[in-house]
Amino acid sequence: MTTGPGNDPRDPQGAAEDGENWREEERARPEHPLSVMLFSWMRTETFLRLFIVGVGVVSLGAVVAEWVLSLQSGEPSKRLIGFYGIFGGLAFALAVLAGWPLGAALRRPETHYDPPQHDKADAAAKGGADE
């Protein structure tokens, strides 16, 4: 295995410990120049606001453009102008918000499926090496 220790998803503790160890040496690793160039300016609050506005403008612009197009072509639009946008936004919000109840209902501790310790038969059936 070339992956580091603690990569077993069933072993959160191990991963956490290794994470601690790694941080010590990794804090020293400088940010990649390409990252500085491409992404560093994205971290500012101003950019984020501009980005939200930009996305909103593009989206609304697409709706407007669709409206203009339907006027030009003259034939009646099959669906409501902006149907895709509204549907997309709502669908996305629904999917995300469904995460709250679903998470509460379905999430179990990470050890949920781990085999119970007393189950020796399990181990025996899997190769008898653990005896």
Binding site: I52, I86, F92
Partner: peptide
């Protein structure tokens, strides 16, 4: 573009409003 744009917009809004479910460790049934 509409579909994706509005969806991303929704994401940004939800994230700003802290309505986006946080990532928590666990097994999903």
């Amino acid at each position: 573009v509409q579909l994706l744009g509005f969806a991303i917009f929704a994401f940004l809004l939800l994230k700003r409003m802290h309505l986006y479910p946080p990532e928590r460790p666990g097994v999903i049934l």
